[in-house]
Design a protein around this nucleic acid. Structure first.
Lengths: 350, 350
DNA sequence: GTGAAAGCGCTAACAC
DNA sequence: GTGTTAGCGCTTTCAC
């Protein structure tokens, strides 16, 4: 704790004052405080003491201007108010904070013009040392401009051309979920997929559907387009789509549903209840995510770990921003996922 | 669109290059681009053209260092992954972006040491022009340090001593919700409140409970401690607490529940269903928030408007950062709220 | 290991 | 209305 009462001061302490008090030059103060370059133990101690006594803190602007480093990372995402995105952001922010980096947030949910404006802002104002793009497909131009400025980029949630990327294997995840159902003996398996408009970025809906079809195929179950309904990844969307699937006559109704997100899966569980169907007795439901509420609903799901994804993205960035010896540049990374079996799935009734 | 291909360049264009190309001085470029000070139309046009052609953008660090303004606002919040907080942030970010400000995010959900670390970071590094604190009670020391640096602060979600604050009147909101139930003729009204540990910041649980009691009082209904259960504001917490209230024998069971958040109210609806009780026939439920999912569940609620709250906070900040003539400094502001009646409430059965 | 000094790229007086 | 110029507060050669 600095030993000065702050409300008595209006201007901030400069490095020169610290230097004077410590009886060294400003260069030594800079070196002592930043850890770059060597400083004698005695000098370092004197500097630390002086800085503490004066309540000194570097001006990030002056430091950035002189050094070219901002210690700030931009995180760009398409939504803030959805579990996956907020979780990735949380994980990234936490890791960045620990490494001494600030996070500047760019939420694109406002619309198209906002996106252009964001790129004007931070590409251009050189506020950040690097960029994390979550489930966003940057254009080649955007990537090129960032790279031209020497700013590393890492993508989370899907591949960006020319950019190192973290992603789960969506096909494999969907296949795993569906295989869980075929393994239980289900043969009429419905799918709640993502609507085409959500496919713009990383083709996540399409890939998850491919995984679903692949699992059916391996189990020798013919694909039936009537068992697929698409929605918008929300509970409400999943509810309505599931009602449609489950409203079919008992003979043709699916005995299990694989939803491309937990929120839609929860919607399906609620829809089943409202139709008087018991889960899992009449219909099994499996999702993807391991959403916060998955446990509450007893939802079987394939967990992905967005917080870890965010933290991992930071590791990769830091390796480029602060290369340490022995660290190899990493290739694209496929993230882990795992099936979490709860009470929403069981063998079919007969 | 700038007419240069960015990947051919590695260093960024400086103001001097623009000045040269436009045939004016750097001062004129600065003035033309920032809008501060007067510039002839011809000069302005020339500067704009040159800047565009070269793909010039100011270095925010150099600009901040020279001017003392960062065009960056820090937003501090205790959670990211909850509807209210994410919505406030979204509203604030959007308004800030429109005004040309970046947002640096400080999420404190990591724990206590993180909080100290955050204050080291941004109080101290002078990265921001102002601070928005959402549902956080800053200490006097923290407020004093910010003020000492001349940084405006605005609080959202509750009062901070010495700081301009935006908040709903939690007592009135809770009273309105409860009055809706008494007005329908309910006399056994349960309350799902917030647990004491959530009271640390703005005593929101206590205030909402006061509103509840006030409404009962005015309706001449005696307060009954057995009809109150506390939880953690989540669906799951509300579910368990509601089960407790609704598990009582029919005679003593509440015919209506007022929950201090929509998420808990949704938990109550699900609990009622699981107990075989119809909503609103057997039990009415009302919440506070107008959460994204409120409509889906047909939840009657008192809406607050967190996105607007965030945007409003920005207005207040901007008024201080960029005072315009005729604008009066605003006092603390009570935000609007409104009862939204849906299908989860009705008159009691008999 | 340490200090002197030259910038980093811009803004804001000030003079014209 | 426009140019000149002195910093903003730091980091980093370069010499010692």
């Amino acid at each position: 704790m600095p030993r000065v009462s702050y409300d008595e001061r209006v201007h901030s302490v400069s490095i020169a004052e610290v230097a004077q008090r410590a009886g060294v030059s400003t260069a030594t103060v800079s070196r002592a405080l930043s850890g770059r370059g060597r400083v004698s133990a005695a000098a370092k101690e004197a500097v630390l003491a002086a800085a503490d006594a004066l309540g000194y803190v570097v001006s990030s602007n002056a430091s950035s201007l002189a050094s070219g480093r901002t210690r700030n990372v931009g995180v760009v995402l398409p939504f803030l108010n959805r579990w996956y995105f907020a979780s990735v952001l949380e994980g990234a922010q936490q890791a960045l904070l620990r490494a001494g980096y600030d996070v500047t947030l760019y939420n694109l949910s406002g619309g198209g013009e906002e996106r252009a404006s964001v790129f004007e802002h931070f590409l251009l104002r050189q506020r950040v040392d690097a960029v994390i793009a979550v489930s966003l497909e940057l254009t080649e131009d955007e990537v090129a401009r960032l790279h031209a400025l020497g700013k590393p980029i890492v993508g989370v949630g899907g591949p960006i051309p020319g950019v190192r990327t973290l992603a789960i294997d969506d096909v494999a995840v969907a296949k795993l979920a569906t295989e869980h159902l075929t393994g239980l003996g289900h043969t009429r398996i419905g799918h709640l997929g993502g609507r085409a408009e959500f496919d713009s970025d990383f083709h996540l809906p399409v890939q998850r559907r491919h995984g679903y079809e692949a699992a059916l195929d391996e189990a020798g179950i013919p694909f039936d387009a009537d068992l697929v309904a698409n929605a918008d990844f929300t509970v409400q969307g999943g509810y309505h789509a599931a009602k449609q699937l489950l409203g079919a006559p008992p003979r043709s109704r699916p005995t299990a549903i694989f939803a491309a997100s937990d929120e839609m899966a929860i919607g399906a569980i609620l829809a089943a209840r409202d139709l008087g169907l018991a889960v899992p007795h009449d219909v099994s439901v499996v999702g993807i995510d391991d959403h916060d509420q998955a446990e509450f609903f007893g939802l079987t799901t394939v967990a992905q770990f967005p917080r870890k994804q965010g933290a991992r993205a930071v590791d990769i960035l830091l390796e480029q921003l602060e290369p340490r010896d022995g660290s190899e540049p990493l290739a694209d990374i496929l993230l882990s996922f795992e099936l979490v079996v709860r009470s929403s799935t069981s063998r079919p009734r007969d």
